[in-house]
Design a protein around this nucleic acid. Structure first.
Lengths: 197, 197, 197, 197
DNA sequence: TAGTAAACGAGACGGTACGTCGCGTCTTTCG
DNA sequence: CGAAAGACGCGACGTACCGTCTCGTTTACTA
């Protein structure tokens, strides 16, 4: 089947899934291989075996492609654990987040996208809509569950707490480049628990 | 005599200070006017009344220029207040930092540079050497003074504390785009004081 | 239909004839206007309303363009008259040649190309292949016809005769800059006839 | 003396002969090594160990330098033999001229200069004044002597005869690139003698 | 069982900016 | 005061990608 499937050359109704996936994969590969600055739409097209026009038909910028590629890769997400214990949930979640941000390929792509968002406000908005908002919800989840369970008071400013939990992690990942180990994330959890209890 | 020196067109010993300053100023202006992506070396040269070759003689990339321009602008620095009181020092310092990062032109340039550092590890290293390290020292200063005064124990992990103090500020500025008001920074100080005392 | 075809912006099968002609015409015009040294590919592109890349796609140097332009202009050629009389043929042909070389725009382009060939052996070879060889055939034609008619012996060294006929004309045009009038060309014909008869 | 003379760095009284010769020699060498197009004033300065300004103080263009270099090399000139016999004089002279033009380094430089003169009328005038006029006198010499001796009539159009004698040689050297051997130059002499006698 | 229309590959096009090279000018310092 | 050194403004070079535009081809739905 795959053998004689040969090339796809158009379809009256709807786009070629084959082309779409080839582009996303090529974008990912080339980002790793050449870096963000060395990533060109022309190269993506060539490497994906796709014409430039096909890319421009469906995406408008290279960061648009990268965002799609990133979200595609994000199938294996950041599951928010639910141990019924705020401490264990947070500890587990922050460790995962730190690992994701600093150690995985997808994390590298996210850092690149956040970097680009610093000098493109339109893209910053898109990134928020398509990824960050959802991620923020996940960040809050452990605390929200604790409130529901009555473990924490309704009056808690969850947003502020989340910023103090994850902020230092992003700071090290994006700014100082310092290590983000379990000692560090556990300390963040400890500090949080002392604040809220 | 110095007055009618007119234009400087090169001499045997060293570069033209006039050209240097014109480039840095033009880079600053154009970054604000056109944004990072719209900032070209060609435009900087034209706007500074300087030839491209003169730029390439002294800088290698546009971020190189921007970093110089940023450091030049940083004369009016972030003075670290010394009230003799840890609380007042921190409260003051964080407010200044937040204002600098989110409200000033220099802060915008810094965010752009941090953004670029996300996809250029070489530049990230340069940025650290030429700016961030020094900034980190400033960040630590208030706590270090408190230790010297005996207000805080020697055993304090100052680096970790600093990350928890400034991390959330950078996080909001670089990632969520959320407001960084005095209520937020004061809460960070409160949390810090509770941790260390 | 052909009327409203409007602008051509590239297509799958080959180059834009419109762009090709615009380049050749612009090259011709600019050579006359600015001279050889003042002729730049950038100016040709601008004047032809064509991008530089389009020029570089099809030509490698400005002399390459000029040679094409010259050959294009050469539609109205140097017809070799055939009066059935060697004397009348030669007299007519040499007058035409002298006029062409010293008085016409195309002649000026040819002198420029010959000039460039003096310090570019590769181009000299190209010039021979694409123009001079054919021109040499034309130069020989009148004598060859006379041989065919039996007017001249088979043993005649036509190449040597041609060099003595046209050589002095090129010499004056290219080296001394002296006038090449009819008295001069007629004298060349007379001398030739005396030699061969 | 030569030992401790070291470098010359300015002179209160007139220009440096050392610099002048170094420039001319470097120009010659580089023309051979890199060709006319690859010959730059910057390279000449570097290769001669001379500053650009020194070159510009004394010459205006690179062809100006080359012309000086050419005339300097022309010490060993084209002596016009005087055997007391027109035939022997001409035969000898044309052979020398052909050899000079097509086989010597100085001939190559002359061809380059003639090439440049095709697209620079100002330089063409300079070349005539500083070299060609003198050369034309030499070309005429053998015939003039024959007239003086009474061997040829006063009424002879010497200029026209010279063009027919040397024209074909320049034509082959500059245009067709054909060989210019003794058979060819001797034939030219034969034809001339038949015309004038 | 054609026709037909969307999506495709290919790739030429007008552009913009790149980073480099050489030009000719200028200034400073040395001898 | 000539010469070395070398920075400067300038302009063209040739290249890389940009995003747009045909132009045939492939394919799956529709008539």
């Amino acid at each position: 089947m795959a053998e004689n499937a040969a090339r796809h050359h158009g379809n009256r109704h709807g786009r070629s899934e084959q082309a779409r996936l080839a582009v996303l994969e090529a974008a990912d590969d080339l980002l790793v291989e050449k870096g963000f600055a060395g990533l060109t739409i022309e190269a993506i097209a060539a490497s994906a075996g796709v014409s430039k026009q096909t890319i421009y038909r469906w995406w408008s910028t290279k960061t648009d492609i990268l965002l799609d590629a990133f979200l595609q890769d994000l199938a294996e997400d950041l599951p928010v654990p639910d141990h019924g214990s705020l401490e264990r949930d947070l500890r587990h979640y922050l460790r995962n987040l730190a690992y994701f941000l600093t150690r995985t390929d997808a994390g590298a792509v996210l850092r690149a996208l956040l970097g680009h968002a610093q000098h493109d406000v339109d893209f910053a908005a898109v990134l928020r809509t398509r990824y960050l908002d959802e991620q923020l919800s996940r960040d809050k989840l452990a605390l929200e569950r604790a409130v529901e369970r009555g473990e924490l008071p309704d009056s808690l400013d969850i947003a502020a707490e989340v910023d103090q939990l994850v902020g230092p992690i992003y700071y090290r990942a994006l700014v100082t480049g310092g290590a983000v180990d379990e000692g560090f994330t556990d300390a963040l959890v400890d500090a949080c628990l002392r604040r809220v209890s």
